[in-house]
Design a protein around this nucleic acid. Structure first.
Lengths: 234, 234
DNA sequence: AAAATAACATGATAATTGTCATCTTAAAAA
DNA sequence: TTTTTAAGATGACAATTATCATGTTATTTT
């Protein structure tokens, strides 16, 4: 009794439980979840899963930041999405019954839990609110992906960089020194906006000269959010 | 009794019922469906719904071809997805409880049925197989969107055109004269691959000269599928 | 601390793609 | 059928972006 309580609390108070589709689970379900999950620590740069791998479950992100990306023929890494604590990972391929379409790697040290597919399917079939949540989460991803697809075509690299900087600021916030909290290399930033690393660096340098941002070493501080917004929207 | 049978058969034998998530519905549910749906005919060029519109339900495509697109600031129409008979339309915004993110227009004369949201939610909550199907359908869209997003960045316009021609051939097949069955204008084709109309026309002309395709008036015939595949995959 | 490596930066140049102008042909409207 | 409009085609040119080369500055590793 004592033990189940401890285990339950572990999942019950978890940030993922509070923010993701899992918030729809009832006490009993959370207890089941806690007993079937396994925890991992993943160091910056390491992979959670790789493209083509069969995951057979989803990953809860307790802490850290990760990237979902695909390697191209010419060796460039196109980043499809960043994920942070509170989110679930690998929902799509689990539901589609397919190997992972993308590689998931840690950008900052991560703590994740793995939940086996059988558990998720069970929740999906028996908890309408959970299945609706999961559905809405995938729908949200779809909308975002479609809009990014459109932006890739309709906006210039400069516009996309401005837009991405604003998004990173919105989603991850800033450090005490007012710089962006997510620590991306220029190469990774280029991978998000879909351009060459040099182009990205050059534009950051331009933005810096124009006073839109300030480069503090490798870190980036947004100086003129209004102008960046204007630039992003053309 | 006689009447319910007739109505039920109408939906029961419909191609959408056979191909979409709706295949999971049982007899009773199909009867409910048939009594709540409304049918429309939509002429080529007309809209089913427009961006920003609240649809409050999904559309079944009984016949015809449609495009989901978004108009850019400079007046260009980026096509996100083509839809054909047997598919459902507007699932995402219905589930997300949001106005439509994209505009849906007919590319060829269409017959569609509208199913109100209340019905779909009802099926979703009471029929596990239906909700799983719907989920998988959205997941499939997501995977496709992500892969297209990656292709948009990692491939040249030439490669994307080759790829798109092959996809159109795969998905819609060819007419008796061996030309592609979907009748897209050059502008629409350009909207799919995400390029300027002139660039698209120029590349089609190049492909023609290289013997990869043949231009029969406005129609396109694939002549060398193998070479097109090689080009698309780089 | 020294050496090695990775990340950042910038110039020079080439390739790709977009824009504008003009023309032809096909389709729709009068 | 004639007129008008839309779609397709092609050239000339400009803008954007990628690539290659090279140098500098931070990080790691030894």
């Amino acid at each position: 009794m004592q033990q189940t309580n401890i285990v339950m609390n572990k999942c019950d108070q978890c940030i993922v439980r509070q923010l993701s589709s899992l918030k729809a689970l009832n006490k009993e379900e959370v207890i089941k979840l806690a007993s079937s999950k396994t925890s991992y620590k993943i160091k910056k740069g390491e992979a959670i899963f790789e493209e083509g791998e069969v995951t057979n479950g989803v990953f809860c992100i307790k802490d850290g930041v990760g990237k979902l990306s695909k390697l191209s023929a010419n060796g460039k890494d196109q980043i499809v999405k960043l994920v942070k604590s509170g989110e679930l990972l690998g929902q799509r391929s689990m539901i589609s019954n397919e190997p992972a379409n993308l590689t998931a790697k840690a950008i900052a040290d991560m703590e994740v839990c793995f939940i086996p597919k059988t558990e998720i399917i069970n929740f999906f079939n028996n908890n309408n609110q959970f299945s609706l949540n999961l559905m809405q989460s995938v729908c949200e991803d779809l909308k975002e992906s479609e809009n990014e697809k459109i932006a890739l075509v309709q906006k210039t690299v400069k516009q996309r960089l401005a837009e991405t900087l604003l998004q990173l600021h919105d989603e991850f916030g800033e450090d005490a020194d007012k710089t962006l909290k997510v620590q991306l290399t220029r190469e990774e930033l280029a991978g998000i906006i879909g351009t060459a690393t040099e182009s990205c660096i050059r534009l950051l340098s331009d933005f810096n000269k124009l006073g839109l941002i300030e480069l503090v070493g490798k870190k980036i501080m947004l100086k003129d959010v209004r102008a960046l917004k204007k630039l992003a929207d053309n």
